[in-house]
Design a protein around this nucleic acid. Sequence first.
DNA 1: TTCCTTCCTTGACACGGTGTAAAGTTGACA
DNA 2: TGTCAACTTTACACCGTGTCAAGGAAGGAA
Lengths: 196, 196
Amino acid sequence: MSSHKPDTRTKILESTWKLLETTTGDDVRMSDIAKQAGVSRQAVYLHFPNRVDLLIATTRYLDEVKDSDGRLAASRSATTGLARLDAFIEAWGNYIPEIFGVAAALLAMQDKDPAAKEAWSNRMQAVREGCEAAVKALDRDGQLRPDLEREKATDLLWTLLSVHNWEQLTNACGWTQDAYVDAMKALARRMLVCET
Amino acid sequence: MSSHKPDTRTKILESTWKLLETTTGDDVRMSDIAKQAGVSRQAVYLHFPNRVDLLIATTRYLDEVKDSDGRLAASRSATTGLARLDAFIEAWGNYIPEIFGVAAALLAMQDKDPAAKEAWSNRMQAVREGCEAAVKALDRDGQLRPDLEREKATDLLWTLLSVHNWEQLTNACGWTQDAYVDAMKALARRMLVCET
DNA sequence: TTCCTTCCTTGACACGGTGTAAAGTTGACA
DNA sequence: TGTCAACTTTACACCGTGTCAAGGAAGGAA
């Protein structure tokens, strides 16, 4: 796991990550990744069968390094529904910028490659489960708007917290990360919680 | 302009449109479009310098045929701010599914081609102006939440009404078009309008 | 030492899609 | 009859992905 000199596979994953962070999605070719890793292009194919699998592996590597599970799990310890909602939004909302490069690359291949679609869909399903749990907790507290079924509420929260919305607000509209998180928290409450 | 037998250029645009409606984005190749139009691949290049320009031209053609300007303009005639907000959401929200095929194709090329990015950005800017006008009308009526500046409110409404959000709710979550429009209207009010 | 194995390199190539180039066809118009 | 414009046909260059085969370097076992 924590060997001193990184093996080739890890070097490739690190390089992919770095390149996707700095340049945008489709500009990252297999040869670029190989060069960055100081390895031949064929060595990359020795470890990953194709580009899509490499990107998917990179997201898994990122999750591992960044401990995405641990972060999202933290929101589970909140007692009240409202606290749980806030904690989840904070955890996920602050995770987005860290994975955005890789996410955007994977997102860009969605309609080109079914495996990419599947991989992204799986990851978003995990986020959806977090939304569902938050909605459930709100409902248990009797705080969910009566005109909203749990599933619809989950759909809305999930959509609100999409990577695309984060990108639009922070990149296109120039919001700071903090402004984004605060706005999402406020919006989620207005969207889901009944008036006090 | 309105000749009886459609010229080649129009046939190509119609074919592009049709193909983008049925199949998904990147699967539509120049040769597919040519075949669908009953024309040689080179004839396509005779009318459009490259794929991106063809896609952009197709969106403009669609706008013309569907009278997008006229539709969005209708919301301008509403008297109250609330009516204007509703009318705009209805007009734009119901326009999305009609242009989605072409929009998705253009969207998919965004980070591959700067011209596509530019074209899409221009179109979204028009939508943003609609949002801005609705927010302004609300504010003039004294209905805009006091904790929201006009620009932030515009950003939020614009983000809420993004094509991606429409896709996620209708495609991924399976909402009907009507449910989508109703939810967006309700949400926009909760987001922007101060409590009565 | 020699041999074997594993990981990696080098160089070549097939494939598919975009875009270019050039010569030939067709039909309208004068 | 000639000319012009629109379109076809064929061929090709380019680029990125993915495949294939031969060979080299390092390390362990005999």
